[in-house]
Design a protein around this nucleic acid. Sequence first.
DNA 1: TGATTAGATAGTAATAATTACTGTATGAGA
DNA 2: TCTCATACAGTAATTATTACTATCTAATCA
Lengths: 138, 138
Amino acid sequence: MRGLAERLRERGLKVTPQRMAIYRTLCETTAHPTAETIWEKVKEEFPAISFNTVYTTLGILERTGLIQRLHVGENVAHYDADISPHVHLCCERCGRVRDLHKAEVDLKDVADSIRARTGYAISKIELNLYGICPECLQ
Amino acid sequence: MRGLAERLRERGLKVTPQRMAIYRTLCETTAHPTAETIWEKVKEEFPAISFNTVYTTLGILERTGLIQRLHVGENVAHYDADISPHVHLCCERCGRVRDLHKAEVDLKDVADSIRARTGYAISKIELNLYGICPECLQ
DNA sequence: TGATTAGATAGTAATAATTACTGTATGAGA
DNA sequence: TCTCATACAGTAATTATTACTATCTAATCA
């Protein structure tokens, strides 16, 4: 969990306490939170921080490639500090989003073969599955 | 392109001219339009139709499983009358969404194996790739 | 075929998510 | 320390989606 500030600086981003808190919060969770959830968490440390700052900062982090914005679920955006291509499993009942890193499908291979077949310059791949998780099934 | 009305009736939906026009419009394109685009098209036939009718009708068709709502792109919803699981290729420059049916990956197999490994009851699978299409690359 | 009724349409309003704008404050480099 | 580009907080504007209501119409049955 070290070197977060360096990563910001590498992309030409200023290192501010608020920005660090937002980035660190996302790095420390695997829950794929929304901007609102991150805001709640960061407010514990910075009670005066505005939702807008959290929202725009997440947008900046995404555009510089430090985090990933997920289109899972219905309308709200979810965020993920893990930028490696991996599978997302979304439970339609409890809403939780689970990662699947060691899936049979290697998404890198998938992207490569599709690139070769179609001529697209592929920059991002999203594999989202929706269903009911084992816990909710009981 | 026949039997559209029957499909509506099977799901307990009333067959109205507007609804038919919306569904038919989506069936006749492979462009994955937004609600707004579909509205523009249907207005040629029904100038008085409201955007709201188009929007809510698309929601009904999706909830009854006749069409598919895609989370590709940024914020707006896209729709697809092809409800088989298939890959979507989104060009980040021209915005077009292309289908990939004969991809190496059989999404049904992917869903089945993930189901077996995780215990999820998977109901929907989305594989979206983003990049630049060959046309835009030139 | 005509009356009945649940559901569809058109129109508008409300909610929610995202983006834009502005004055002040602050990190980074000279 | 000084300067400047950028971040922050607050608010406003835009856009997407959902909710509501009064009419209207497709489907069912007498």
